[in-house]
Design a protein around this nucleic acid. Structure first.
Lengths: 193, 193
DNA sequence: GCATTTCCAGACATTGTGTCCATTATGATA
DNA sequence: TATCATAATGGACACAATGTCTGGAAATGC
């Protein structure tokens, strides 16, 4: 009699690894084509050449597959980051360079993760904010010395939207004027190391 | 015989205005409760007390309703900004305060707009980045003088994701090291007005 | 008041989801 | 290599949501 206690398994059946790999790759391949929301479980299975019932023996649903896929890649970034952390010692944001490097190596994945969601409204709001930032930066000729204008624009617009979303989601302890003040400070002086 | 040319209508039937208003309000109300993706057309109709078939006489689908809802409000933000622009004159980022103020006045709308893109794929990555930023900022005790840590975290994480998305979407003329360098500079010193 | 428009409930076909089962195929192990 | 455990498979099923279409009832505008 063989008793196999939970979690005692130290090797993974090749079939499992193969199936999961195929499914993950299929998802990543399909997202740029149709957008995540439009991708069906059936699409994934056909692209991966995997039976639909097999899908459900591995993942509860599409979201579970997505999580697992991201999780796997994110772990590799984490390892890379730890390695980098020991080398460089005390950089300001240790996560950023490994992330840029990973995005460079796995561009299709990151494109799938970050590309405009196809959501016209979100994209429209983003674009409006960017336009507003662009106008001001160009008009007032701020930020030179090798800093590409578009980079600064994306930076500021992204920061603003993130901060606005957070502020709206919280209980709004800060007044609009206070929130704006903090934003202006961060945008102007940065984290001020 | 009465011929009604397209677009010649100058008044809107009260029933139409009433129905559309109810549907838009219902959507905005439901998004914070369940998230946009989980809201069904039936949910919206029940909340709005409107027949489901009526829904489809006004909007092609759920996305169309969302578009129409947000578009209307976005126009009012534009007007507010123009007004504010004339008053203040020469602030650094003129768009930000009016936006914060509008978000304060129409919080449910902005919550619906910014909370979850419906594309949950962003949210997961977003959360990971935030965690990475949070660890570093807290660990290294950076940013004091009345700057709430969470504000700085959201700011940096949002800026990073926007910059990363932009970089991945372009032809990647910048190397990972260069991109990271620019990011570090902006994060550390800001726009440097 | 009357013609027009909108609202509505319900029926319908369609698509995608998630579960289950019996059967076949394949990797692990000795 | 033989054996056994596990994975993969297609098909059937119930279910939920979508989007279309009807005919009649209700409201609106003029």
């Amino acid at each position: 009699m063989k008793i196999e206690r939970a979690g005692e398994r130290n090797t993974i059946d090749r079939r499992v690894a193969r199936t999961r790999g195929l499914l993950q790759d299929a998802l990543i391949a399909l997202i740029p084509e149709q957008g995540y929301a439009a991708v069906t479980v059936d699409d994934i299975c056909q692209r991966a050449n995997v039976g639909r019932s097999t899908f459900y023996t591995h993942y509860a649903d599409k979201d579970a597959l997505r999580s697992a896929t991201i999780e796997a890649h994110l772990r590799s970034i984490g390892r890379r980051r730890e390695a980098a952390s020991q080398e460089t010692g005390s950089r300001l944001f240790e996560f950023s360079l490994p992330m840029f490097e990973h995005a460079h190596a796995f561009r299709p994945l990151h494109h799938a993760l970050l590309a405009s969601s196809g959501d016209t409204i979100h994209d429209e709001l983003r674009e409006r904010i960017r336009r507003a930032v662009r106008e001001e930066l160009v008009e007032k000729r701020i930020g030179d010395r090798g800093m590409p204008a578009e980079f600064a624009i994306q930076f500021i617009a992204g920061a603003f939207l993130a901060v606005l979303a957070w502020w709206v989601a919280t209980d709004m302890n800060l007044s609009p004027a206070q929130a704006d003040d903090l934003f202006q400070r961060m945008a102007g002086k940065g984290i001020g190391a």
